[in-house]
Design a protein around this nucleic acid. Sequence first.
RNA 1: GCGGGCGUGGCGGAAUUGGCAGACGCACUAGACUUAGGAUCUAGCGCCUCGUGCGUGGGGGUUCAAGUCCCUCCGCCCGCACCA
Length: 821
Amino acid sequence: MAFYDFLEIEKKWQKIWEEKNNFHGEDFSDKQKYYMLVMFPYPSGKLHMGHVRNYSIGDVIARFKRMQGYNVLHPIGFDAFGLPAENAAIKHGIPPKEWTVNNMEEMEKQLKALGISYDWDREVKTCMPDYYKWTQWMFLQMYKNGLAYKKKSFVNWCPSCQTVLANEQVVNGKCERCGTMVGKKNLEQWYFKITDYAERLLKDIERLKGWPEKVKVMQENWIGKSEGAQIDFKIEGRDEKISIFTTRPDTIFGVTYIVLAPEHPLVKELVKGTEYEKDVLEFVDKMQYLNEIARTSNETEKEGVFTGAYAINPVNNERVPIWIANYVLLDYGTGAVMAVPAHDERDFEFAKKYNLPIKIVISPNGDENIKLERAFTEEGIMINSGKFNGKSNKEAYEDIINYLEENNIGRRKVNYRLRDWLISRQRYWGAPIPIVYCEKCGEVPVKEEDLPVMLPEDVVFTGKGESPLKTSESFINTTCPKCGGKAIRETDTMDTFVCSSWYYLRYTDPHNDKEPFNFEKAKYWMAVDQYVGGVEHAILHLLYSRFFAKALYDFKISPVDEPFTNLLTQGMVLKDGAKMSKSKGNIVSPEEIIQNYGADTARLFILFAAPPERDLEWSDQGVEGCFRFLNRVWRLVDELAPKCKNSNKVNVNNLSKQDKEMRRITHYTVKKVTEDISQRFNFNTAISSIMELVNAMYQYKDLENPNYDVLSEAIEKMLLVLAPFVPHITEELWEKMGKQGSIHEQKWPDYDEKALQVEEIEIVVQINGKLRGKLVVPVNASKEEILDMAKNEPKIKALIEGKEIVKEIIVPGKLVNIVIK
RNA sequence: GCGGGCGUGGCGGAAUUGGCAGACGCACUAGACUUAGGAUCUAGCGCCUCGUGCGUGGGGGUUCAAGUCCCUCCGCCCGCACCA
């Protein structure tokens, strides 16, 4: 008997698949298309178990859909720009390109060793000029359409990565990549105007029926829509006004002070030359050095100072003091707030601390004599609010906005938390922003035909806060595309999330050198039918990609305005209850597992141990178990192949009871696996039902007279349904069975409804809802017959003897419940 | 605080519509084969006070019947968090 030599088998088939190139997605095929996408990896050097899980899930779906007759696009590539490459250059003197290319080669080998059915012809690498040329082209389209602009403002600065970060890349005040506390810097930077798309990004979440609720809620919160009013307050003795945003215009009569963010541009003006100047500027200074988290946590105590200036409440001309405080943020709303301590918890806390007046304008029941222990934020009746008194605050909300608009002192306003996407990075290893600065013409975009703006190689990596591109003479000096005069290049590169915001489109036409992709090809393949990846991209990559799709759709470049129809967020791979990490020393290397057990075992374990969305606890013994199962399959087919090779189609008219039962299990398994994969992606239960089939086959084959036609059918169907999970062993056994062609090019098996039917079924008999006996009855027995048989079952008969029967419930095919007193 | 998810044997997890709780796998126990076994096969395996018993985080409810529906409490994980 040949043993299961997984190393040999996997090598053999990987070579054949590569030569035959049979996982190719065909443009414009008549077959129905299916675009199966996994999030492409950063080329860190080695695959980790998270990758293995991601790609195994994707591969099962791709192979399954292919067998079901779809024209499947299943591509892979590398998100290849980014900091680690540059850090390697600083640390070890290896050029970023060399480091990245080596890593990609290594990871390609590992992906191939896993036997994932990628269309390798479509591989994209974002760091190559043939790709980043088009990333730069995308920038130019954004620029042309007014969605790319430059502005100076306080930005997030990671001192470790020595670059600015987008808001999305700051997690709990820390750098999303390296975990360092992020600071603030006032810099001139490039932005994409994602805020123009806030409403559409929000509204279209409704259309994402195939996305997890969790991700949709996260995006909704991130966009953070709130409705209210913008109201102008005059400043006493000045011409300027202060505009505030509020969601509670109904409380405007309760305003007792105004608060500006410390960085608000008016602050310095208001205090200039006054006795308050010193204190205020000191406070502003202090705030600037605080990081985001210390500044914005609601556990941080509220602090503020009076500016000495007053504003006038436009509805009642009351004079209210203007303060600055840490709890007001410059970049939300207008950076200024009207404070209504009676009806806002934060304002209440602040007013108590600094002894500011509290004026009640909404009362729970209309009563004016009420005392507040804390802010009253619920609904009520308007008081102390002039002509709005006596109305419900809900009604007053509308009336007051109308009043403000009529008198031109305020207007209805929708505000979003989402801010524009900061895309400049002061780093080398990214796509250069295609802009030059001309002495005469100023900021000028590079002409499309001059793309790509190539990354130079004569750079010095200092790791010191400025783009290394500044050290390249050959790069920096250029001529103006407009006037031909002397000009210098923009030295910042683009955030790598720009590269990954459109890669799914490039896969549809990866070798096009005339345009980023052909519209018709993209139209054929898009949208992505199933996207699989980690939930850590719930906001970052997934929101940016949605923005790109919409912007490109508006420019008539993309055929779709939502890129991903269905999204599966896989759980993490844990070891000893924690995420695998170097520092914890709980890493299991995919390479080692493949070496010791084979790729098929690795894939099988990872798919079997938990449903895909859930976290998965690594278990060496679990791997062992999966390896045992594959050996069981191997031995079974190895033993039976000679007897089954030349068998015929099953003659259904000539089957014993056991033959029928074997066939029933075979066909039921096909049904179950088909449903588990296609309806719910429950690979774990699909695999367990195949295990049950194999167990049943072991029993059956050792009977006195097994029917080899039945066994042959069972083996064939078992191998077919197992093929998407463990592609190598099934291919080898398919060949052993004397079958023609690759198992992966076979049609997904059907099941025969008739084979599923049984003549007798087991029925549960309950007394008062408790299990008291079992009964085998003909499948077509009537309710009366079933009840009769149940009552005559000796055990049941004894129990109901002499008791009054209150109720009898018969559920055909399931149970009988006799209720007695 | 708000939002989302989860809680089932020693462990990972099944139970699709309210209908036999614990499929499948791991671990464990006993046996067979064997020079040997960490291979393979067979059997057992929720708990206990062994009953007409108990049991899906706790308590209550609806129902002939609840892991599943309702109420309530507890615990854990994830996301957001002074957003005016």
